[in-house]
Amino acid sequence: MNRLVEFCTNNMHHGTDTILRRLEEERPDVETIEYGCLGNCGMCYLEPYVLVDGEIVAAETAEALYEKIVQKLNEAAIDPFADLPLD
């Protein structure tokens, strides 16, 4: 199942363009889309952010944002039923 990370072009001045390229290179399981606007202008002006599967993920720096994105992607990849017995 491919995951979706959405970027705002107006937020690229925070360094999210490097995150976009890095995800494209390192995470084939992630679909990245770049939009002209995601409608979160106040947040967009203040800090780097993206939408991961429709949920806002933000951080103080682009590098911290990348780590949060990876953490969010990995959390969702964990199967909560994996340890249950099959009866």
Rank of each mutant, 00 (worst) to 15 (best):
T9W: 11
T9D: 14
N10A: 08
M12K: 03
H13Y: 13
H14G: 03
H14M: 14
G15E: 07
G15N: 00
I19W: 00
I19D: 00
L20W: 11
L20M: 10
R22Q: 12
R22W: 03
L23Y: 08
L23G: 07
E25D: 07
E25A: 15
D29P: 13
V30R: 05
E31M: 09
E31V: 14
E31K: 12
E31Q: 11
T32V: 11
T32I: 06
I33T: 15
I33R: 14
G36C: 08
G36R: 09
G36A: 09
C37H: 05
L38A: 05
L38S: 01
L38H: 06
L38E: 04
N40R: 10
C41I: 00
G42C: 05
M43R: 02
M43Y: 01
C44A: 07
Y45K: 11
Y45C: 08
Y45V: 11
L46A: 15
E47M: 04
E47V: 06
E47I: 01
P48S: 02
Y49A: 15
L51I: 14
L51K: 13
L51P: 13
V52Q: 11
V52N: 05
E55T: 10
E55R: 15
V57K: 09
V57H: 12
V57F: 06
V57N: 10
T61W: 04
T61R: 01
T61C: 11
A62L: 00
A62D: 00
A62E: 00
E63Q: 06
E63N: 06
A64Q: 15
A64M: 08
